[in-house]
């Protein structure tokens, strides 16, 4: 499986963020997007997820499910966590497990939820309404979605924001396990994340023409 972008031109509002951008990520590796603020890291991730159409060029997941869009085969972790304060940690996870993987049965949902709680060190918080959680704990809950349903492509935008070192290590373990099992991941970041094997794609600002 390989995700490719060819000759992409991305625009945000009336500004062009990147031009003639090409990249490829193969199963079993992580692509790190780096570059200054406003270079288009988030925009590129959103374009891959299908939220916005590139002004030119094509994004393709080779070897993926041709019936589904790239976005439907991807987990997307953006700046917001998609966490409901009025639901408990477990209820939040139950909803996403059932919503993202409606075809698998309840037993496998429970197994995956248990794994998610364990991987992101949320077991002790399982029955607490998410509104009581700290920013870092909410981020962990948002990230825990990654293991609730199997999707080959992970799109992570600043995944370690508001995480402490131990949680960042947990995340790195989860991502590395996903990649080792033949998954793909793309992460936009300012910091070293400990993901491997990783390649870097440095985005720069497009000069005004």
């Amino acid at each position: 499986m390989q995700l490719t972008g060819e000759n992409l031109v991305l625009q945000r509002g009336q500004r062009t963020l990147c031009e003639h951008l090409s990249f490829a990520v193969t199963a079993g590796e992580v692509l790190l997007l780096t570059g200054p603020n406003g270079a288009g890291k988030t925009t590129l991730l959103r374009a891959i997820a299908g939220f916005l159409a590139p002004a030119a060029g094509a994004i393709e997941l080779k070897g993926g499910d041709t019936e589904q869009t790239v976005g439907e085969q991807a987990h997307f972790v953006g700046h917001a966590n998609g966490v409901k304060s009025n639901l408990t940690v477990t209820e939040n996870l139950e909803f996403w497990a059932a919503f993202l993987a409606p075809k698998s049965n309840r037993m496998s949902h429970i197994e995956r939820i248990d794994k998610a709680l364990e991987d992101f060190n949320l077991l002790s918080l399982a029955d607490i309404p998410a509104g009581y959680l700290s920013a870092g704990q909410k981020r962990r809950l948002g990230l825990a979605r990654l293991v609730l349903a199997h999707r080959p492509l992970w799109l992570l935008d600043e995944p370690t924001s508001s995480l402490d070192d131990a949680s960042a290590t947990n995340l790195a373990n989860v991502v590395n396990a996903h990649v080792a099992a033949g998954g793909l991941a793309i992460a936009a970041t300012h910091l070293p994340l400990g993901f491997e094997p990783a390649r870097e794609l440095r985005l720069g600002r497009v000069a005004a023409s």
């Binding site: 500004r15 000069a207 005004a208």
Partner: peptide, 17 residues
């Protein structure tokens, strides 16, 4: 006019960097 102004801002920012 608007896009000319935007381009001007971008140019100024590029020369600043």
């Amino acid at each position: 006019v608007k896009s000319l102004r935007l381009a001007e801002v971008d140019r100024a920012r590029a020369s600043e960097t």
